[in-house]
Nucleic acid binder design. Structure first.
Lengths: 209, 209
DNA sequence: TAGATTGTTAATCGATTAACAATC
DNA sequence: TAGATTGTTAATCGATTAACAATC
């Protein structure tokens, strides 16, 4: 698995390959050619071969790709063979839904903590952990050692909280707030701006696709 | 607001412009040049001018852009001046969280119905509407006339349900399931594959950004 | 009028697709 | 060996950036 120069566009396509390969694997298919896969996924076979080759030769001439093997390889590139300690920052509706999100634990994202500011929420249980006041983060982070923070708080607290998380040594932030966080050094921010999707949707409906 | 040939890349950037302009507007700034905006947003001024020009000349030479006006114009392009009737299909944790999502109503997305299959959930209230059994969709859709369906159900029911929604005349589907829906004719599908974001996040953490 | 900044065309860059030699 | 299909290079396409004339 030797990386060449891998463009951001390629990385963004990997989860999609991974999802399709999972389905194909579950159908009991053992091998697949770039051509077959391209038909299923509605992309060009050329792109598939080009993309996969960024990470080394997974295929075999005259045969194609071993589904199981390719699935595992992409999973590894995506870091899905690892375990991640995760905390929820903001245990409101969305935070709670994400904490209970099924695919979450299964994919190696283990909830180790949850924080909020509301008295109504603090002390309640969330997927096996007790929700604490955010002020206890400083004391708890060295114990919990979380890798990833899921940020589901109001926009106005986002920037300061992100800075604090960075200071406490978080590696990645999954950002569900409206704010754009300019990622602190060493922290990767993955934005999940739900409202952007909603706007794109409304645009397409209104303009008639 | 005359559309030239507008690329998909441009459309996808509009929500981001919209968000920034909202912030700038709230700061009380009246006019802004492409240069100032480019510094804030960390894109090139050239791209901003190019993008905005797809929809006609919003700016003025020697002056820049009127923030209020540009904000309103982009909102209109995104169809945010309209109202949309929305139904939740799958009133589990995520569905309920989205239904209660603050920015939702505010942006013109009005919940008019919610459907599920679980006896525990049917009959409960969700943001002002009573959750019904999905089998009642056929009877209720002609009454409710929803524009958008938010799909938060298990993957295995996704394809069949999407087909049903299309048959009942839905215009757009906000897809939170793992499944890739090949959009039925006349229906726009906006995918919100949350797990993709999580995979990208894990990749970046593991490979060290 | 002079200065500023857009709208727009041309140049560059990157990403996608096509083609084919290598090889299983 | 012959057929199939990859890995990889070259050609094309589209999107981004630079430049500048138009104009407020």
């Amino acid at each position: 698995v030797t990386d060449k120069k891998v463009s951001k566009a390629v990385i963004k396509r990997l989860p999609r390959y991974y999802r399709y390969l999972q389905t194909i694997k579950n159908e009991g298919i053992v091998r697949i050619s770039s051509m077959e896969l391209s038909t299923r996924m509605n992309v060009t076979a050329s792109q598939i071969r080009q993309d996969l080759n960024c990470f080394g030769g997974f295929g075999q001439q005259g045969y194609g790709y071993n589904v199981e093997q390719l699935y595992a390889a992409i999973g590894e590139i995506l870091g899905l063979d690892k375990q991640y300690k995760t905390v929820i920052i903001g245990a409101g509706n969305l935070g709670r839904a994400l904490a209970n999100y099924a695919g979450f634990e299964r994919r190696g994202f283990n909830l180790v903590g949850a924080f909020d500011v509301s008295d109504d929420i603090i002390g309640t249980m969330l997927n096996g952990v007790e929700v604490m006041h955010i002020d206890r983060a400083d004391e708890m982070f060295p114990v919990l050692k979380p890798d990833i923070a899921i940020l589901t708080i109001p926009q106005r607290y986002a920037a300061a909280t992100a800075a604090k998380l960075a200071r406490l040594g978080i590696k990645g932030i999954w950002n569900f707030t409206h704010a754009e966080l300019n990622a602190p050094e060493g922290v990767y921010v993955e934005d999940a701006h739900l409202s952007d999707g909603l706007m794109t949707l409304s645009h397409h409906i209104t303009s008639g696709k």
